[in-house]
Amino acid sequence: MKKIIITTLILLTSLVLYLHDYNNKPISESRLMMDTVITVKAWPPNAQSAINEAFKVFHEIEEALSFHIESSELSALNTNFQATRTIHLDNITDLSLKYYKITEGYFDPSFAIVNKLYGFYGNIPSQLPDKELIKDTINEFAGLTKVLSFDKDYAHLKHGAKIDFGGIAGGYAINLAARAMVNAGCHTFLIDDAGDIKVMGTKPDKSEWTIAVLNPIEKSFLATAKLPSAMCISTSGNYERFVEINGIKYGHIMNPLTGFPAEDFVSVSVIAETPEEADILSTALFAMPKESAYKIAEELSLAALFLTADKKVVLSKKGNDFFLLNTTK
């Protein structure tokens, strides 16, 4: 009898431990959406249903704000220069206008018209546009506050202008997806939209959220970032989206003052409380000349990590609290 009791106790303990372990394992899913790969990783409870909810949000945002989908609200604005105001269009234009002002125009979704001149949208073969054409195009069609206006029911775009929310839509979608996951009853997760990342909650093993920052030149890790719960990180660079003209690569993030690809940095990473802020500010800082970027990062008290074109690594003051540089080669 004793043997049976002991055996049963041991087996029950094993079962409890196994189930506890099983319930603490995350589920991860990657999908190609919004012209990139999106990965959502979630821990129980409700991990799978929360992941499904997150991808529903990404799908909804893609349908509403894609530059390439003809039926999107943004395409209506870009094609007809007028679109019915919707929640997503209102939210994203509000955020864009806010950060257009904060960054003094370095974050400017209306700069799509200049990117188009280089052939970034596949509309024409890649080419180096004439300087005068760039200048005239900027004067006429760039500047978000200049080309975008609203009345009670409609958003209006200046005829001939184009808007691309690529520098903010990912962050916006992450924010909404995170809310959807919490509403679905999942409180520990990571959402990764091509390097725009939000973490939430405490993992079962209590370990810190650790994000590696890539050094795109050496294909190694530049640094690691330790993120507290609910924080976000985003990295912008010109090494992935570019056009090649006469053997020279031209990146997609433009300096709005010159109309030429920004070239002071290889990458800029920003940690912020919201994914939109991290997404926008990493892009805006990347577009700036070095001195302006360092100054703005300090003024806004941002945790930022810069990899300059001459391969120097620079951390903002607050960056020291979050980034740990990789000193091994």
């Binding site: 190609l32 012209d35 990965t39 990571l190 990342i197 650790t210 994000i211 890539l214």
Partner: peptide, 21 residues
């Protein structure tokens, strides 16, 4: 590879995710 819909996803040792790829 976005056009062909291919994702090659390594399990990144010691990290939860990678930014800047």
């Amino acid at each position: 590879c976005v056009p062909n819909g291919i994702i090659i996803n390594p399990t990144v040792q010691n990290f939860d995710a990678v930014t800047g790829q």
